[in-house]
Nucleic acid binder design. Structure first.
Lengths: 193, 193
DNA sequence: AGCTGGATATATCGAGTCGATACATCGTGA
DNA sequence: TCACGATGTATCGACTCGATATATCCAGCT
């Protein structure tokens, strides 16, 4: 599934501009999908060229004019066929966990800082999520509640893991650093070659 | 962090060919990172050009010759600096959850099939993971145990959520379909193309 | 009055990634 | 013998990401 399909899906819930599509994705798909303008605008252009969406200019007072897109009948058809036809992918790409995998190459302060950053990020994300859910949950479909609930559950589990293993990891890494193995900070300081 | 850094990291654990790097990533980073040949081979070529890794041909009997790379001193230095300097990203891209978000556009059988596919995938992944962990856990560093444990915990939480909400979602979607709203399967059957 | 920062809005470019594919060698089992 | 799968290197097009440019308007500060 590419951003084209995502746009069709969002537009199936109502007319939106490119900017507003990105806002919707950020709010509703926060935990499991993202899309930048560099993907959205070309996708919209291609969809319009193919007749799956129709755009029209909308003047606004107090802010720039926008181009609002609506999904067409063929667009709805394409969306249905794409959702049925593609196998469901689910990919995690975590540079954070790669960093943790190589924790023994990091200075202890850096390790602690990274851990704290992620804990804060997950906490904030969860709070924003809960807030968004509370404001909208009575208008959501079963599928929307399911997807949002999944994200919330998984992030909560991740946060819990981080909080419960932070100290242990920090201790173990410090101990093994102290036991003779050189740490990256040292190597760096000595690296003068 | 790009695949170049990933390669340096893997090579810091020992010499490997491009093919073997991919194997290592699949085994050890299964839950949180992946890299294809289309990224690994160019990364290796660029790293060698810059002097961060050194490659040599190794003949093998009974299988094709391979080109094995080892990390150099400047490579180790670059790895340390990169791991310290980059902010930790963590991105999930789940077409599966987008699909669930739009569950009301899916025929019930398709929805059930997608759910079952994901449950099976997570179950298998978890089993392979447990197996890999059991075979290697006494040689792992604290950071490696932490990263692997994170992956295991999060996948287990996801699997649990899926198993506990599968029936509910299926019921709710079926009910709302029956209550008059047309479903994608109908639209598709009527579309005649 | 003037200036800055931030939200709204569209658009593009280069760098990097992904998935598919091509090619080649060798062992194993039908 | 012959297809298949594992090992191995390599590349190409399509797509995505992140940064950046441009522009308008409001709110708040000096």
């Amino acid at each position: 599934m590419d951003v084209k399909t995502l746009c069709l899906g969002v537009l199936s819930m109502g007319e939106r501009s490119g900017y507003e599509i990105k806002k919707t994705v950020e709010e509703s798909f926060h935990h499991f999908f993202r899309a930048g303008y560099g993907s959205i605008y070309p996708a919209l252009a291609e969809l319009e060229r193919a007749g799956h969406v129709a755009g029209r200019e909308v003047a606004q007072e107090g802010r720039p004019a926008k181009r609002v897109y609506g999904i067409t009948a063929t667009g709805r058809d394409l969306l249905g066929r794409t959702l049925v036809g593609e196998e469901p992918r689910h990919v995690v790409r975590s540079e954070f966990l790669v960093l943790m995998y190589f924790a023994h190459l990091l200075p202890a302060e850096r390790l602690a800082a990274v851990l704290d950053t992620m804990i804060a990020r997950f906490r904030d994300g969860l709070a924003a999520d809960l807030d968004h859910y509370a404001r909208t949950h009575d208008q959501l479909t079963a599928g929307q509640r399911f997807a949002l609930g999944y994200g919330r559950t998984v992030v909560a589990a991740a946060l819990d893991y981080l909080e419960r293993h932070r100290e242990t990891l920090l201790d173990e890494v410090t101990v093994s650093d102290a036991s003779g193995r050189p740490q990256a900070g040292d190597a760096l300081a000595a690296a003068g070659d």
